[in-house]
């Protein structure tokens, strides 16, 4: 079952084609890797999917629905989540508050009831706090819950950012270079975590430069270069493709 379909997508910034005639399908519960040199259009692709940018041409369909023209929060509410490259946290809030914000979409109580702190509002707040605590205990950051995110070591920041994104209970998760800046131990842990997420039914699109992670996690990968799809297929084959190697290492 196709979860995300990108049809003939193009995105231009003035004369520059950041993405050109891209066709892509993402299937339920798979991990799709998107790789390519810097400037290939990977971040632009994510930004278009999430609604920060509108397509110049073409469409993005999520579970069959055209989301190309929707606002970011509407796309998020339909089940799309994202971790950002460096800034996937509310830096000046505590770990607990970060994860708590992830549960924002669960609230049903309206403005006035929230303002007046009615019983219903307080009850929902209580439930969200409880869930946040559970999430934190599950991922092992329970002891750090009152630490301000900015003071966390890098690895823990990434974990917290992932936890916050997962609190929003997405069906499709876009991960923007989650391994960036990690050491081998952290990468190994992250690979395990992401594998675990897939096992639980989460569909993931992974933009990543780290080839170890890509090889071990991705069911399929897509290589982008200058906004165009260069190759697509199973990691072993694609990474042996001559053109792909040229693009990364250069000719000669």
């Amino acid at each position: 079952m196709v979860v995300l379909e990108i049809r003939n997508l193009s995105k231009y910034f003035g004369g520059l084609a950041a993405i050109e005639s891209l066709d892509l399908n993402v299937v339920d519960s798979e991990i799709l890797g998107v790789v390519g040199p810097n400037g290939a259009g990977k971040s632009t692709l994510f930004n278009v999917i999430c609604g920060f940018l509108r397509p110049s041409k073409g469409k993005v369909l999520f579970k069959g629905e055209d989301i190309s023209k929707l606002d970011t929060h509407e796309i998020a509410r339909r089940g799309v989540g994202r971790t950002f490259q460096q800034t996937s946290l509310f830096m000046m809030s505590t770990v607990f508050e970060n994860v708590l914000t992830g549960f924002h979409m669960n609230y049903r109580v309206g403005f006035w009831k929230t303002f007046l702190h009615t019983t219903a509002a307080r009850k929902e707040e209580q439930i969200a706090r409880q869930k946040s605590q559970e999430v934190l205990d599950f991922i092992g950051l329970g002891s750090q819950k009152d630490v301000i995110a900015q003071k966390l070591p890098y690895g823990n920041r990434k974990i917290c950012g992932l936890a916050t994104a997962l609190a929003a209970n997405p069906e499709l998760l876009l991960m923007d270079e989650p391994m960036a800046g990690m050491n081998y131990a952290e990468i190994a842990t992250m690979v395990k975590v992401i594998g675990e997420l897939r096992a639980r039914g989460l569909t993931i699109i992974l933009v990543e430069h780290n080839m170890y992670a890509v090889r071990n996690l991705c069911d399929r990968i897509v290589v982008l270069n200058y906004g165009r799809k260069l190759a697509e297929g199973v990691p072993e084959e694609v990474l042996r493709n001559k053109e792909v190697i040229e693009v990364y290492i250069g000719r000669g």
Binding site: F52, T72, R77, V80, F84, F90, T114, A121, A168
Partner: peptide, 26 residues
């Protein structure tokens, strides 16, 4: 001190992230 205030803080600290968590910025 309510969820509204917390959401306002989130918007001020990192609005793209807030939007991806379902916050209607507008």
């Amino acid at each position: 001190s309510s969820r509204i205030g917390r959401t306002w803080s989130a918007i001020g600290l990192n609005s793209p992230l807030a939007a991806m968590l379902g916050v209607n910025l507008f």
